[in-house]
Design a protein around this nucleic acid. Structure first.
Lengths: 217, 217
DNA sequence: CATTCGCTTTGACGCAGATCAAGCATGCCG
DNA sequence: CGGCATGCTTGATCTGCGTCAAAGCGAATG
C-alpha cells in the first residue's frame, strides 16, 4: 500500500480516547500502524460486547460505506494510517490485487469472528480465559518475531474489564479465573499485566479445543 | 456470475445430510441456490456452536484455501451452484469487479457475525430468542418479497435444537422461552414451526436492541 | 510522605439457565 | 391399525457465573 500521494495521512490517539462512535460519518478508512484499538457494541442499558480487537496492520472501515457500525476506541496509544474514502475506493477499482488482498484479510477476520463465536456461545469462564490468553500469546509473540515454543511470556494489552467485554463475562469472573489458573500453575503473573506460560500445551488443554498439538512446532 | 462454461455445476443435498466436514479438502466453492445450510463448530466433548446460517445466494468456501474450517450441513433440502476452485480463483484475478462484489458480501457477513457476537455474549435467553426471530423474520419476508410491516408471519427454517446451537443455549431453554413469548402474546405459533408476529415492534422491544423504530417503515 | 485514583482481588449470596427426567404430538412404516 | 421414531414441551433440581460489597495495591499527584 505505498505510493498513495495526497490521499494518505496519519492520525494518533491517546490510550482511552475514542476514535469514532457508532453511527458517525467518517470520510476515511485506515490501517493500524501501532498500538491497540477495539471495536465494541453497546446496548441501551450499558451492556457491552467487544466485537473486534485491532492490532498492527489491521484494517478499519468499509470502502463503500460512509458511516461506521461500531464504537472504535484506542486502548493503548494508537497511530492510524488513513486514506480518504473516495480516492481509496477508486484506487480499489483500478488496482484489483489490492481488493483481493483486502478480501483475504476480511476472510481471515471472519474466521476469527467465528472462532470467537464458539468461545462466546459454548465455553466456560475458565476455557474463555485460556482461549483468550492463547490467542494473545500467538499474536503477540508473532508480532515480536519470536516462535511460540513451550515457554512463552507476553504483555496483556487489555485491562480485566476489557477482557470481560471481549469474553462476555464480568471483570470479577475474569479476575477469579486468572487467579485460579495461577493457583493451578498454568500461568504465572509478573505484576498485573505480564503473563508467563511455563508450558503452552497445558494452557491449550484448558481451552477446550482439540488439543492434538495444533500449531505447536 | 454468468457465462462460466465448464467450471460450473450443481449439487443437491437432502435435509440433514452433511455437505463437508471441517478439515476436508474441497476443490470447489459454491453459492446456495435454494434451501438452508449451516456452518457449525464442534468441540471434542460434543458442544456445538453454529457460526453461519446460509440461505439463498450466500457463498461457501474460500477462493484461496483448499480445506474448509467448519462442518457444513444441509438443514433443509439444498441445492448448491458450485465452481471449481482453481478456475474460479483465476477468474477472480481477471475479473476485478467480482472480487469487489465478493468483498462486499464478506463484509456484510462480518457485520452479521458481529451482531451475532453481541447476542451470544451479552443477551439473556429471552432476548436471544427475540433477536433470532426478528433476524429470521427479516430474511424470510424479504426473500418472499414481502414488506416487513407490523404484522408478520413466517416459517422457522430450524429445529429447536438448531436454534439452540445458533444462540448458545440448550433446546429446553429455547422451548421454554418460545412458550413464554407465546404466553405473553408477543408471538403466536401455528404448529411447531410457523410463527405469527402480531406486532413486530413488540418483538423488537424484547431484543434489547435500540428500539427507536429501526428498519420499520 | 500522605492522599487519591484506577485497577484488581476476594468474599458472600442469589438467580438464570443447564441438567436430568418424564410425558405429549405428529408422522412414518410394517 | 399399532408401534416406533423424531421433535417438542414441561417440571424439578442443581450450579456457574453475575451481583453487591469491601478491601488491597501500585503509581501518580500535591
Amino acid at each position: 500500500m505505498a505510493h498513495l500521494n495526497g490521499i494518505k495521512f496519519y492520525k494518533s490517539y491517546k490510550a482511552g480516547e475514542p476514535i469514532v462512535w457508532a453511527g458517525d460519518e467518517v470520510d476515511f478508512v485506515a490501517s493500524v500502524v501501532g498500538g491497540v484499538a477495539t471495536l465494541t457494541q453497546t446496548m441501551e442499558d450499558g451492556r457491552r460486547q467487544m466485537v473486534g480487537l485491532l492490532l498492527a496492520s489491521d484494517f478499519i472501515g468499509r470502502p463503500n460505506r460512509e458511516t461506521v457500525a461500531y464504537d472504535v476506541t484506542a486502548i493503548s496509544d494508537v497511530t492510524l494510517c488513513c486514506f480518504r474514502r473516495k480516492p481509496f475506493h477508486e484506487m480499489l477499482v483500478k488496482t484489483p490485487h489490492i481488493s483481493q488482498r483486502l478480501l483475504e484479510m476480511t476472510l481471515d477476520e471472519l474466521d476469527a469472528a467465528r472462532e470467537w463465536m464458539l468461545i462466546l456461545g459454548r465455553k466456560t469462564a475458565r476455557e474463555k480465559i485460556a482461549s483468550f490468553l492463547s490467542i494473545i500469546a500467538r499474536r503477540e509473540t508473532i508480532a515480536e518475531g519470536g516462535d511460540v515454543g513451550t515457554n512463552v511470556a507476553f504483555e496483556l494489552p487489555l485491562t480485566r474489564e476489557a477482557m470481560a467485554d471481549y469474553l462476555g463475562l464480568t471483570l470479577e469472573t475474569v479476575s477469579r479465573q486468572m487467579s485460579s489458573l495461577k493457583r493451578d500453575g498454568v500461568i504465572q503473573l509478573e505484576g498485573k499485566r505480564r503473563v508467563v506460560v511455563p508450558d503452552f500445551n497445558s494452557l491449550l488443554n484448558e481451552t477446550g479445543d482439540d488439543s492434538d498439538g495444533g500449531v505447536l512446532v
